[in-house]
Design a protein around this nucleic acid. Sequence first.
RNA 1: GGUCCCAUCGUCUAGCGGUUAGGACACUGGCCUUUCACGUCGGUAACAGGGGUUCAAGUCCCCUUGGGAUCACCA
Length: 470
Amino acid sequence: MSAIRLRFAPSPTGYLHVGGARTALFNWLLARKLGGTFILRIEDTDVARSTEESVNAILEGMKWLGLDWDEGPFFQSDLFPVYREYVQKLLEQGKAYRCYCSAEELEAKRERALAEGRKPKYDGTCRGITHEIPGKPFVIRFRAPQDGVTSFDDLVKGPISFNNEELDDLIIQRTDGTPIYNFTVVIDDATMKISTVIRGDDHISNTPRQILLYEALGFPVPRFAHVPMILGSDKARLSKRHGATSVMAYRDMGYLPEAMVNYLVRLGWSHGDDELFSREELIEKFTVEAIGKSAGVFNPDKLLWLNAHYIKSGDPTRLAELLLPFLLERGVDPAAGGPELATAIVTLQERARTMLELADGALFYYRSEVCYDEAAAVKQLTPTQLPHLTAFARQLASWDDMTSAGVEALFKEFCAAQGIKMGMIGPSVRVALCGVTTSPAIYDVVAVLGREETMGRLERAISFITDRPE
RNA sequence: GGUCCCAUCGUCUAGCGGUUAGGACACUGGCCUUUCACGUCGGUAACAGGGGUUCAAGUCCCCUUGGGAUCACCA
């Protein structure tokens, strides 16, 4: 393993959303490409907002996408003593100080500053207090330099610099003694020896403060790569109103993880004109340099196209496994009878874009009591069709070759013998077997269903026509 | 509002000084076809605007405009 160490550090305040998933993916890809280490760290210092359900949801999302981690998950809530130690160190060195301003006072000052058009920056009231005030609650602030420039060379955005006067003395420890994000992230990235921080570009403005902290603590500063945001169709930050944002919601909507990975990686990263990437190709071809600088709009249509591609080209046996829950949900259990699922799937792959569509399309194979679509029945299951269907059933009964090609030959021979065209028998048989006018190729359907089941369904259709009142 | 980031078809993007500005999704026309699809061939569609630099600018610089992010005892 190389010394490259990367991490994904979500906060457990919700499910794994597509933006976070892409950040995780980029980190994972680079780690795998360079033979580095990928670390998962849960940033749960905000005890009030963090939940165990969220942690589980995030882990589940990572696993679904196939993003395995080498170390962790580490929980910041387990590291409070460590943070306390470093806070103490800064305090002793005079690089941090106690601030006794109350949250209310601060809020009032901030609003006043904003109203007067000034910067809502901490005014340094407590900067000069040298002795502790017993009994009075306090937070701890980092004593940030008030002049100079802090800059860094972002791996995706290029050189970025901030005037230190824009930065204020940020709080690193709350009144209750718990540490705050901008501080813990620095301690953890430093102690975990993270070499490159890949994260969303909404963190750019935090970066100079963090760099100042690295320097104050005497830690080496890691490299930063800020990846652009993912936007909704109206170019606003992606949110629920743009549709699903949870990666697990996409699994439930019938999406394959490889489609999601392929979609996500191409949103903001490219490799020439290539669109389709296997996991291996991604590991081989991924580079941070090829990550784009601008925000991208999440395009569900393209995701759907990719999903259709992976269903079309997927291994039927694996698809069968993944499809099972969707089938059971629809009250069908292939284990209870009917054609082998993988065999049925082969006939459906190229006409399903999601596992939901695949499941819906497969239902008729497992329902002998075909439910005829009203319009289809009126058009195809008519007295005129009766002689054709009857004759066809008779010929099928003595037909040997039940492969798809064999069935096709049967149809050809039947049509020739009857002096009719395929169009006069095909559609009726389709409705008799499937109940609807759209289905896989009829030869395939007969082949998959088998002679016995096909005969049964034909006879049922014949009875249906016979019994139907005019 | 301050600060920071960004800017090629509707969308994702290729392009890294000289191209008929390419690909993909979506849309659309033809072909294939027993249905629906798939597939296949073709089409519509972009360098935000203005200044520079240069023999030459989508490519480099500046400004404008537009979009986004961030300004918490959230992460």
